[in-house]
Every structure is written in C-alpha cells, then in structure tokens.
Amino acid sequence: MKLDSLLSEKKFSILERWFNLILESYSADTQSFLKREKDRFDNPVAYEFGQGIEGIYEALLHGMDRDRVSSFLDRIISIRAIQDFSPSGAIAFIFLLKKVIREELEREARENGISEELIELESRIDGLALLSFDIYMKRREKLYEIRVNEVKNRVSGLLRRAGLISELEEKPDPKKRKH
C-alpha cells in the first residue's frame, strides 16, 4: 500500500520522466518538436503518447481490464509500429517505466521497505510488456492485411469490371441488398 500512495504522489514527475525518456528514442530535432508543440492536432504523436502513458500508469495503480489497458498501449504502439523502429525498439518504452520508477523511488525503497511491493509492480509491468507484444503483432498483421487487400481489390476489381469473371450471385437479403 505504501507503494501505491508513493506512486500516486509522484505521478506527475514519473510520467514526465517516462515521457521524456520515450522521446529520447527520436533524434534531437524531433524531440524538441515533440516537447514544444502542445496542440494535439499539430502534434498528434506527443498527444497520443501522453494520453497513452497516463492511462497505462492508472492501470498499474488501480487495476484495469485487459481491453482498456490495451487501448492505452495501442495509442503508443500503433504509432511506433510504423515508425523506424525494430520490434523491440517499438515496445521498449514499457520497460523504461521500470527504470523511471526505480530512480524516482530509490530513496523510499531503501527507507520504507517497499522492495517487495516494487518487485510485484515490476511483474505487472512485465505483463504489460507481453500485452504490448500482442498489440505490436496485431498492428503489423493489420498492415499486411491492408496491403494484401489493396492488391487483391486492384486485380479482382479490374477483372470484374472487364467482365472477365463470372461470379455466383448472392441471394438478395431483404434488409440489405448487396451486389
């Protein structure tokens, strides 16, 4: 319980350090933009990261169902999955939270005997890492699925329009007719 209250108390500084550490995976010029621009539409990446890490942190503190915490992880992973990162680089941000918490709570961990609670928290972060792996794969699979569909539609659309294929007609559905 001690740890929970410490984490709540230090939420702002932990999130800020975590956010800045994540941004360090970008070049210096990019980092300064991501930190400077506060408009969520001019700077969607930083906005999504900010929302994502806050949601993940809340999940760690108060517990959250899998779908909801996945949606927060996805706000970050969906972006990093298409940027210039290796798979490990794309989801490494989740481990950075361990580093931040260790550093932020270093003194408290020594003085207040929260080491065990910290180990438990780190296990939960490991769980999030596994979830992140699933989300990353889902994103990459989506990308390939879109690509395959693009190619398929291009070919089949042309053939159909040129009258080169004969398809079985579907039975008409009275609620929704489709051709």
Partner: peptide
C-alpha cells in the same frame, strides 16, 4: 516549415522536415 509536414509529424524522421 519544419513541423508542418505530415511525414515529419508522423515519422519523427528529421529529414522529413
């Protein structure tokens, strides 16, 4: 112009500025 390009915003690659 640096941060106005959608590729820079989305990729974070400075050469897209």
């Amino acid at each position: 112009c640096a941060d106005k390009c959608h590729y820079f915003i989305g990729s974070g690659d400075p050469k897209n500025m």
